[in-house]
């Protein structure tokens, strides 16, 4: 074995060691990424299902069906209308501040 070869082998083995370490990190990251992709898919599924569930509560179809099943009718079909729009709210009773201002015009 020549002197050059003798020097090259440890360098080569050192590089291989480094490569193996990088490979290990690569595998760890890759597995982590796979887990994240799975997680992402699960979460997207969850969001989609929750959107569907939400639409069963506040979607236009759900609201129409709920109203009908509770005996509600569209406004024009109302037999009796006692109040169409609420009247103006009563002014709150303000507490007496104890201060009184008197303006006198000259």
């Amino acid at each position: 074995m020549s002197a050059l070869s003798r020097r090259a082998v440890p360098v080569y083995l050192g590089l291989l060691l480094a490569l193996a370490a990088v490979g290990l990190v690569n595998q760890t990251l890759y597995r982590h990424q796979l887990r994240l992709i799975d997680q992402r898919r699960t979460l997207l599924d969850q969001v989609a299902n929750l959107r569907l569930e939400a639409a069963k509560v506040d979607g236009p179809l759900a609201i129409t069906q709920w109203a009908t099943s509770h005996g509600m009718v569209p406004a024009p079909e109302a037999q009796k209308v006692s109040a169409v729009a609420a009247g103006p709210a009563a002014l709150p009773q303000l507490p007496d501040s104890g201060l009184e201002i008197v303006t006198i015009w000259h």
Binding site: Y12, L13, L16, L19, A20, V22, G23, V25, N26, Y30
Partner: peptide
């Protein structure tokens, strides 16, 4: 020399 190289490359294989 090749065997350790292959062993190191395993880290880049699924």
């Amino acid at each position: 020399l090749t065997l350790p190289l292959l062993a190191a490359l395993i880290g880049f294989v699924d």
